[in-house]
């Protein structure tokens, strides 16, 4: 068998490369009929994302000071503005709940706090704040805002003290 000289080797290598490149072009040519170069590679990746309905709500302040109240005194109304965060895209229902009032070892019931969608907070009849969350039916549209008013009544004979309570305002949708 004849030995190949360097020129032959180079030409064979070139032919091999050409054939490989041609094969590659044949395999990878897109079906969509786009005019692409022989060695171009194109692929379409379809991205999908589902944006669900969401709601947010924020409160205007994190504390309500009802001031100094004597037993049997009533305080109303304390206004709390609730905003629907712009991040949401559907209306939020406002749900409220709370804890008992405490001052050291002294307590009085959560139901002494009342809420109302308007500033006409009444104590009889009243929407009592409860430990179990209650739907106020106050609806805040996406990006909108609304008000909820709170009042408190001190029970007769309540011991002297500085009482605190947690009021929980939540969005629900």
């Amino acid at each position: 068998m004849e030995k190949l000289n360097n020129v032959d080797k180079v030409s064979i290598a070139a032919l091999l490369l050409m054939s490989i490149s041609l094969t590659a072009a044949f395999v990878l040519s897109p079906l969509s009929g786009l005019a692409l170069g022989a060695n171009s590679l194109s692929s379409n990746v379809i991205g999908t994302v589902t944006v669900p309905s969401t709601c947010f709500a924020t409160v205007s302040n994190t504390a309500i000071n009802f001031g100094s109240l004597a037993p049997t005194a009533q305080y109303a109304p304390a206004n709390l503005v609730v905003d629907s965060n712009a991040g949401g895209n559907v209306a939020a229902n406002i749900v409220v709940s709370g804890t008992d009032w405490t001052s050291g070892g002294n307590t009085f019931l959560v139901t002494n706090t009342v809420w109302n969608p308007t500033n006409t907070v009444t104590f009889t009849p009243s929407n009592d704040l409860t430990a179990v969350p209650v739907d106020t039916h106050i609806q805040i549209s996406a990006g909108g805002s609304g008000n909820i008013y709170f009042g408190v009544q001190i029970p007769p004979g309540q011991a002297v003290g500085t009482y605190t309570q947690n009021i929980i305002v939540e969005s629900s949708c």
Partner: peptide, 8 residues
């Protein structure tokens, strides 16, 4: 004194 408002 007063109410602490928590949100959620």
């Amino acid at each position: 004194g007063g109410a602490v408002v928590q949100s959620g």
